[in-house]
């Protein structure tokens, strides 16, 4: 495992820990999109089915279980926790997230590496993950006061994707890995969606101002 991959995974893990910490300590999920979180549950369940078919490493197995468990846990908090659910910005989180699931699945049926159940589900999870952040970015744009934890959560999530791009470049040149266009392109699309957010996040950080996205 190269340094970019490890840093990417750690950034992803940290983002989830940060979000859970925000929810548990402030008893609030304000600014967090339930739609995005629900899409992540679908992404992880579809992708990590290979938990049962193939063993890679202890690290790999533990991380998969952590990502499945934490994503379910976050959705549970936002939907069912007596206090937390009342802080959810339901009226602002209006992206109809279920409409992106069928097109992603259809695309996975058409464009994949190999036509097997596991491979199509894996590919579906890549396509879905690429767009899963959209409801969150839309909610963010509608939120007047973005708290630091929410801003940092999205930054870490975007950093995870950007580091994975570096990881693929490293693997391609240093490990002579095969070209994997499906992962690369969907990863590139996913990272590109963060570009605008990154721009304003870094700007606010440099100017020592509160993060605010233009309407």
């Amino acid at each position: 495992m190269n340094i970019f991959r490890l840093a990417g995974d750690m950034s992803h893990l940290l983002s989830v820990i940060l979000l859970l910490l925000k929810i548990r300590t402030t008893k609030s999920c304000a600014g967090i999109s339930l739609k995005t979180q629900e899409l992540y549950v679908v992404v992880f369940l579809a992708r990590y089915l290979n938990l049962f078919t193939r063993y890679y490493s202890f690290y790999n197995t533990v991380m998969k279980l952590v990502f499945i468990a934490t994503s379910v846990c976050i959705v549970w908090y936002m939907r069912f926790h007596k206090v937390v659910k009342q802080t959810y910005n339901k009226d602002l989180d209006t992206f109809r997230h279920y409409v992106v699931i069928p097109p992603c699945f259809l695309l996975a049926l058409l464009v994949h590496h190999e036509f097997t159940v596991m491979e199509v589900l894996w590919t579906f999870s890549l396509y879905l993950e690429a767009v899963a952040i959209l409801p969150q970015l839309i909610l963010l744009q509608r939120t007047r006061n973005i708290d630091n934890l929410t801003g940092n959560y999205i930054f870490l999530l975007g950093a995870y994707r950007a580091l994975y791009l570096l990881n693929w470049i490293y693997r391609f040149f240093m490990e002579k890995a095969q070209a994997r266009w499906i992962s690369w392109i969907s990863g590139l699309v996913q990272t590109a969606l963060y570009a605008d957010f990154f721009y304003y996040y870094i700007k606010s950080w440099k100017n020592n101002e509160k993060l605010k996205l233009p309407a």
Binding site: R5, M63, H113, E114, Y164, R180
Partner: peptide, 10 residues
């Protein structure tokens, strides 16, 4: 193995 190429990623 072509499959193990990215499938060890998360």
């Amino acid at each position: 193995n072509a499959e193990s190429n990215v499938h060890d990623e998360l």
